[in-house]
């Protein structure tokens, strides 16, 4: 077990070195970014607990990937496998646990750790060969794949909107809208194989515009029920609603441009930090959007041509 975790540690370090970060600086940056983000979240929203919990669970859930668990089961016996799964989930959750304790959110802290342990012990994989239907089948792939992975979020967001209208809490409605925005944002976090970019017979600029157009259309489609419901119920707040909606568009476009700005590589840590900073200081987008856009054009030029 010790050897396994040492190997995981080494792999993590290699990933950081691949990002071009010296280890000490990398860890310092990671801890600082985590603390800054956590502080910002708890200072600025009433729903920090929930967002925090969701973030921790989504991070931990990556360890539950079927192929990965299959591999672990093939090399460890049942007892060791369960121990490893429990240990890695709890270790991954430690930063969140510590910050929740610091925030005196004891109940949330216990609840989160119970969920994290359940995630380690329960098997979610199903052998049922069922294809989740999606309204985005005709225009693969980001929303097609993303929707299937996160389809359960949308009923929750729509339910939150309903609750916000029922109790007259506009902020909760905006939160629901932002949840959909963040989920769509996550669809663009992974770089596709260069083959799928190469296949396009358009220029880099046309390619990016095509991606933005698809993203805006589908994001609008998913958010329309929330937007309409909130506009009707909170007519006085419609300006705020429009501002948040435009902000969602802007961040989505930024993410698409950032994604291809280091093509064919994944978004690197410095780009990630820039995006994270822009969440705290949105005017940064005025510089980031043209910067990421011009870099993407340059990078995409290697496989797409004018």
């Amino acid at each position: 077990m010790k050897a396994y975790f040492l190997l995981q540690f080494k792999m993590g370090n290699r990933r950081m070195i691949d990002f071009g970060l010296p280890l000490l600086l990398g860890y310092a940056l990671l801890i600082s970014a985590f603390l800054l983000f956590s502080n910002y979240l708890f200072d600025n929203t009433e729903f920090a607990n929930y967002i925090y919990g969701l973030l921790a669970l989504s991070m931990v859930s990556k360890f539950s990937a079927y192929a990965r668990n299959d591999f672990l089961k093939s090399i460890f016996n049942k007892k060791h496998y369960k121990r490893i799964r429990l240990a890695e989930n709890i270790i991954c959750c430690i930063p969140f646990t510590l910050f929740l304790l610091y925030q005196k959110q004891f109940l949330f802290c216990i609840l989160l750790n119970i969920l994290v342990m359940l995630l380690a012990l329960l098997k979610f994989h199903t052998t049922i060969n069922f294809t989740i239907p999606t309204p985005f089948s005709k225009t693969p792939f980001e929303f097609t794949v993303g929707f299937r992975k996160t389809f359960y979020v949308f009923p929750i967001a729509y339910l939150l909107t309903y609750i916000s209208i029922s109790v007259g809490n506009f902020n909760l409605g905006v939160f629901a809208m932002l949840v959909v925005g963040m989920v769509c944002f996550s669809y663009y976090s992974k770089m596709e194989n260069d083959y799928f970019v190469w296949n396009f017979n358009v220029s880099p600029k046309e390619f990016l515009m095509l991606k933005v157009k698809t993203c805006f259309t589908f994001f609008t489609l998913l958010n329309l029920p929330i937007l309409i419901a909130l506009s009707v119920s909170f007519l006085d707040e419609i300006e705020i609603l429009i501002i948040f909606f435009i902000l969602c568009y802007t961040y989505l476009a930024t993410m698409i441009f950032a994604k291809y700005s280091d093509f064919p590589n994944e978004i690197n840590i410095s780009q990630g930090i820039l995006i994270a900073m822009s969440f705290m200081f949105p005017p940064m987008l005025l510089i980031l959007i043209p910067y990421f856009f011009s870099r993407s054009i340059k990078k995409l030029n290697t496989v797409l041509h004018d």
Binding site: K138, P140, V145, E192
Partner: peptide, 27 residues
């Protein structure tokens, strides 16, 4: 048209969507 030795597939995309994706790319 390029057929790779080991074609790459996204995790939650159906066969028809894969074909659609490559067709869309060439309009």
């Amino acid at each position: 048209g390029l057929l790779l030795t080991e074609p790459f597939f996204f995790p939650k995309i159906t066969g028809s969507e894969y074909i659609q994706l490559l067709a869309n790319a060439r309009q």
